[in-house]
Design a protein around this nucleic acid. Structure first.
Length: 144
DNA sequence: GGTGAGCGC
């Protein structure tokens, strides 16, 4: 006698998964802030001659970046970061003024403004580690 | 092919 046993209805099992009582208060509080945070993630760097410009269009080039920022101060260095292989712009760049006060005027004059149809954001760039070009061979990973 | 938050070779 081969009596096919009826398979358990899957809809009955739904009740087990629908029992979501995870609304209980866990003893673990995922909220670390018990006061003022001394080290925020990225509050913007301190005033310097280097400016970080983001929100650039993919078609915005370095010379265009310098040209626009040169109207608010003396730009001694400007570059749009692009991939070294493909050559396409990453959408952000750096502008360095001769003085910090020129950099401040550059931010006030270009931050939130339109450039090639995109709203750009100019702010002080972070201090980056030195290129360490003392040695020609500078492998990113040192041997043990 | 060219995105859409970001920090450069």
């Amino acid at each position: 006698m081969a009596t096919r046993a009826a398979v358990a209805a899957p809809h009955v099992l739904r009740r087990f998964f629908c029992s979501n009582s995870a609304s209980s208060t866990f003893p673990f509080v995922p909220t670390p802030p018990a006061g003022a945070v001394p080290t925020p993630a990225r509050p913007t760097a301190e005033p310097n001659t280097n400016l970080f410009v983001s929100g650039l269009s993919k078609r915005t080039t370095t010379e265009k970046l310098r040209e626009e920022f040169s109207k608010f101060g003396e730009v001694v260095y400007a570059r749009v970061v692009a991939d070294r292989v493909s050559g396409y712009s990453k959408g952000f760049g750096f502008v360095q003024y001769a003085t910090i006060e020129d950099a401040a005027k550059g931010i006030e004059g270009m931050d939130g403004k339109f450039l090639d149809g995109w709203v750009i954001f100019a702010e002080y760039a972070r201090p980056r580690p030195p290129p360490a070009h003392l040695n020609n061979n500078s492998p990113p990973f040192g041997r043990q």
